[in-house]
Design a protein around this nucleic acid. Sequence first.
RNA 1: GCGCUUGUAGCUCAGUGGAUAGAGCAACCGCCUUCUAAGCGGUCGGUCACAGGUUCGAGUCCUGUCAAGCGCGCCA
Length: 548
Amino acid sequence: MFNKLLQKEIQNYLQTEQVSLELPKNFSFGDLATPAPLNFAKAFKMPPLKLAENIKTHLDDKLSDFCQTEIAAPGFLNFRFKPLAFAQILQALNIQNLISQTTEPKSLLIEYVSANPTGDLHLGHGRGAVVGSTLANILKATGREVKTEFYINDAGEQIQKLGRSAWNLYKNLNTNNTEDYPPELIKPYLNDLDENLSFEELTPIIKDRILKAQKQVLEKLKVEFDAWVSEKTDLHETGLLEQALEELKQKNLTYQKDNALWLKSSELGDERDRVLIKSDNNRPTYLAGDLAYHLSKFNRADELLDIFGADHKGQEISLKVALKALGKNIDNFSILFIQFVSLVEQGQEVKMSKRTGSVITVEEVLEKVGSDAFRFMLLMSHINNRLAFDIDLAKRTDEQNPVFYVQYAHARACSILRNALNPAPDETTALFNSEELQIALNSIPAFLPALDASLPEKEIASTKELILKLLFFDQEVQTASNKLNPSGLAHYLIDLATCFHSFYNTPCKVILPEQKPLSLARLCLVHAFKRILQTGLGLLAVSAPERM
RNA sequence: GCGCUUGUAGCUCAGUGGAUAGAGCAACCGCCUUCUAAGCGGUCGGUCACAGGUUCGAGUCCUGUCAAGCGCGCCA
């Protein structure tokens, strides 16, 4: 695409790969801009404006058919594209791959959600699920070999507690045990049980029912996993946990004290030593299982990514130092911690707690706002920021919600394409058939009528702005992929929708039976917009409706 | 106490060391004979928590202060 060519020419001149092209703050400056002369003035030992002059001379020599270059103080280069450059860009956006692939594909294993099978998913899990699945989509799209896993913590203390709580309710025992899970959390899972189950039989049944309910909610959220890994059956019963502990012992990284097995983690950089096997019941701690699990993950992938709630921050250091001591390259292992989601209802913050009955579940919010709005709104803010989810705003699925704004733009584009390719009710033939459109999409000159100098200036401006915005799609996806942060992409799609609505209202009317070349040219632009918006929404797993 | 994260418009949030700090919501004013008004255009709104420092240039990087959230279990 022309912008890549331009970027490459500047990079060639400066002998670097570090040149970025950006949209200028103000379109009166030009179509694209770069501060490269400011950045490289020192390296070239000349004033920024002088360097800018030299680059301009180089570019004028090479690319004057496509764009003109202007110099602006204190050292910006602004580029003004000729119609041919816009047409070339648009043609590429209509027929080429939209997302660049990484040159070295690596396998990446993403673990996310991994909620305990002891209750319903809350909003924090929901945020992790949405961010994790979106990142998986984005990383796949940029060429990583992605596998996703959900780790089921079904072998620890919490499961025992779940079993006891369920047993008390099942047998109608009034224990008033404050340690128990709240009855309202367990009760929905006690229906239609055999009457004579033993304690040992009851626990796994309840656990499986809860897990199944979690899976169903995740499906509604469009969240899927390649594998569900059970701590009990995949780590304990296979001997993987045993192997991991043996490996630590052989490397002299453990010791016995107070009847417990300890990891010498303080020697490795942790703030204190950690227990691996508990003294009272001889059972492994969470750390022991987690360590074994991550060792097995390292055998299955080049890189690991975990996405957890901020309340799991405590486990990072111990896990990483132990993995490092066992020879794993922890530079290939990232953990993202997702800040909490609070819920605001009628201007009041609704307190939620993971282990009380007043927990706000993903399911109940989904019922009110739907998967599209839920996903989009949770994706909009950076994971490091606490997020206040305004349920009243999200419930108003009529007009305020940003996701409808973006989807509406898609539906509008579809409507235009439909109207152009199908006969109007009072006509027998359509303005165009799909072959004509296909030929136009493959041709650069076909788009030139949309930038014809005889058109009103406003129409040309909004046409250009839309193309330029489309041009940045790939860059936005790459940034999201590299920074492991999908929020920019959501904001980009809103901006893109704004450009399209603005184009529509300029008005750049597309269907003009008396001006077929102009209609066809604009149809190419609508086609590219629809293609990119659909791809972008697809990465977020938000639907792109053809009609609304 | 120590560690991590955060502090930007009335609210919810964007913002690769670059040009006059942005969007949505809320408030106000306009625009449907015209491909979907779930839309568009405009007005109002800011000491980027505070104080230093680095730099040609800081909302962005560094240090300190203040404030908020989370973490620092033989819970998971």
